[in-house]
Structure formats: C-alpha cells, structure tokens
Amino acid sequence: MIDSNSITMLSIKNLHASINGTGILNGIDLTVKSGEIHAIMGLNGSGKSTLAKVLAGHSAYEVTQGTIEFEGKNLLELAPEERARAGLFLGFQYPVEIPGVANTQFLRLAYNTIQSQRGKEELDPLEFDDFVREKMKLLDMNPDFLDRSVNEGFSGGEKKRNEILQMALLEPKLSILDETDSGLDIDALKIVAKGVNQIINKDNATILVTHYQRLLDYIVPDFVHVMQAGRIVMTGGKELAMELETRGYDWIGSDQRNAKNRLTAGAHA
C-alpha cells in the first residue's frame, strides 16, 4: 500500500555492478518506501537476480558506480550478515541445499541470531519447535521438513515454501522474493501468497521478482518495473503486468519513446 506517512526504506541510485569484469547492472534507480510492494519483471538474463544478490551483499558482484541506502544507511558498507540483521531478507531464486545441517537447527540459529540482534529473547530448541510449527501451519508445511537437511532433496516448490518460512520467522523490514512463485502449483501459490500477505504491513516493504502476472493477482503490487539489460526501462502500476502478460516484452524495446512516456505517467501515480 502507498502511504503518505511512509518512510523511504530503500534508495538505489545509478547502480552499476559487474561480475568478473562484465557489467550486469547498468544504472538502476529505485526507491522503495515502507508499506509498498514492488514487482520487478523482465526477460531472462536482464539482471533481476543480480540486483537481488547485490542488495543482499553477494561478494562475487562488484558495485562499480552508484549508491544504495537502506533506512538512510549506506548498505554497501555492510557485510551480508549485517544486512540480514538490519532487516533485509532475500528469498533465493535457487535456494542452496546444505546436506548435514538439519533444517530446524538452521532455522533456530538464524532466528536466534536475528532475535539477539534486536535485543529480543532467544528460544531454546523446545520453545523454538512450538514456535516454528505454528509458522509452518500458516504455510501448510509438513513438520517433517524440520528434521531433514536444509533444502536437501526438497522439491522446487518445497524449497520456495522453506524460504517463505524463513521470512515469516525473521520478520524482515525489506523482503526481496526472487521468483518465489516459480515452481509452485496453484494451491501452493495461494498458500504462499496468503503467508506473504500476512507478513506484509505498513512498516515493511516487499520486492517481488516474478515472470508471471498470476502471482500479482494474489499479492497486489503498487508498482511494476520492467528490467532490461541491467536497467529499469519502464515502471507502471499493476496493469503493466497484465499488458506484459498479453503482449510480451518485444514492444518495449521497439517503442522506447512510448516506454519513456509510460515511465513518467506511471511512476508514483
């Protein structure tokens, strides 16, 4: 929701980033305020996941130009774990499997780390077990997933649910969900969307990276951005997602001027 009392949570200016000397992000500008939901769409390889990982602090990417502020602080100065502790969360497009670490052990470690950072009470294994089982009910997740190794052998959809479970546990201020909807069946999509909607409130913000307008029926975005070759080339409201669904992305490149017009018309309408 767009709220006049909102504060600026994330401010990205002219962000350029490269990997192994190859430029991937070529000047991103994006402002996200508390309470807002932003969707980022775009063709494969346009740089959506790169943006997400740069925000989370992945060390393989080098920021060559531009600034990122998170709640007024220079995000680029923070190590990945400091970003997480400050309230930033990345739901991975491809969550990694960690054989040998029980999911419950991992979830509790992450939860307690963030809790202690916030000066809140940590939970012992028994307390945590009750707590996490409640959260899992919201996501219709089988508690068996607690005893398995982190993501190991989870189906694509199960991994995504596990990401949202982490989001629900860690209660981040800014969540970046990278294709959390990919690989989910319709029922799972509804459940996950319901979970996300329960977490969203006027004090936090969400960036959804997605290819499908379908997700946006359930989690309604305030803004839809289109990425192309490492830039945001167009911004609109949720109707832009519908248009992309029917027309694809071709027209954007071939009609830059039109795109520019939409950009000015659509932004912060």
Binding site: H58, V96, Q117, L170
Partner: peptide
Amino acid sequence: DSEEIFYLESRGLSKESARKLLTYAFAAD
C-alpha cells in the same frame, strides 16, 4: 561452497559461524 556460505550469511550468521556449521555438516554423517 561460497554459495552455501552466502546463503547462511544472508540469514544473519557470521562468516565464521557459517563456515563452522558447514564444516560440521561435512562431518555429520
């Protein structure tokens, strides 16, 4: 694996605890 370390760091674990946890995981079975 640097991606595994990053995954754990992105959940708030320090690099050191991430490395320890993954080392433990290697030996666990």
